[in-house]
Simulated scan of single mutants.
Amino acid sequence: MCLRAVTDAPINSTQVLLAFCAGMAAGTITIVPGGLGIIDSALILGLVTGGVDTPTAIAAVVLYRIISFGFIIGAGWITWLIMRGRHREHLAAMTVPE
């Protein structure tokens, strides 16, 4: 869907699936959190090898990583902040005045 969002060119789903599998395979051997750089380059290389032009492949992969990685991190931070606020409220309620 990210590739479709950045181009109107015909997309072969087999090539996209192979690029995705290559990215996920590259992600299994990475030591970098979230596979930053390694998965991205494997996805771009897979798409370019499949016939997508380089700027379109880069734009699609950046959009995909923003959605699949960036939003997850943002949701995690928001959840942590909510939990932290509730924990502070709970500790304040348990404090007994002398």
Rank of each mutant, 00 (worst) to 15 (best):
A5V: 03
V6G: 01
V6R: 03
D8R: 15
A9Y: 01
P10Y: 08
N12V: 12
Q15Y: 12
V16N: 02
L17T: 09
L18G: 00
L18N: 07
A19Q: 07
F20N: 11
G23W: 09
G23K: 11
G23I: 11
G23S: 12
G23R: 10
M24Y: 04
G27T: 13
T28H: 10
I29Q: 14
V32G: 12
P33T: 08
I38P: 00
I38C: 03
I38Q: 05
I39M: 13
S41R: 01
A42M: 06
A42E: 08
A42T: 04
I44V: 15
L45D: 01
L45I: 05
G46R: 01
G46K: 01
L47D: 05
V48M: 12
T49C: 07
G50R: 02
G50I: 07
G50S: 06
V52E: 06
A57F: 09
A57R: 05
I58W: 06
I58N: 00
A59V: 03
R65S: 05
R65C: 04
R65H: 06
I67H: 11
S68D: 04
F69H: 08
G70I: 13
F71A: 08
I72A: 13
I72R: 11
G74K: 04
G76S: 04
G76F: 02
I78P: 00
T79L: 12
W80E: 05
L81V: 08
I82M: 11
H87Q: 15
R88F: 14
R88I: 14
E89Q: 15
E89Y: 04
L91F: 06
A92Y: 06
A93K: 15
M94L: 15
V96Y: 03
E98L: 15
E98G: 14
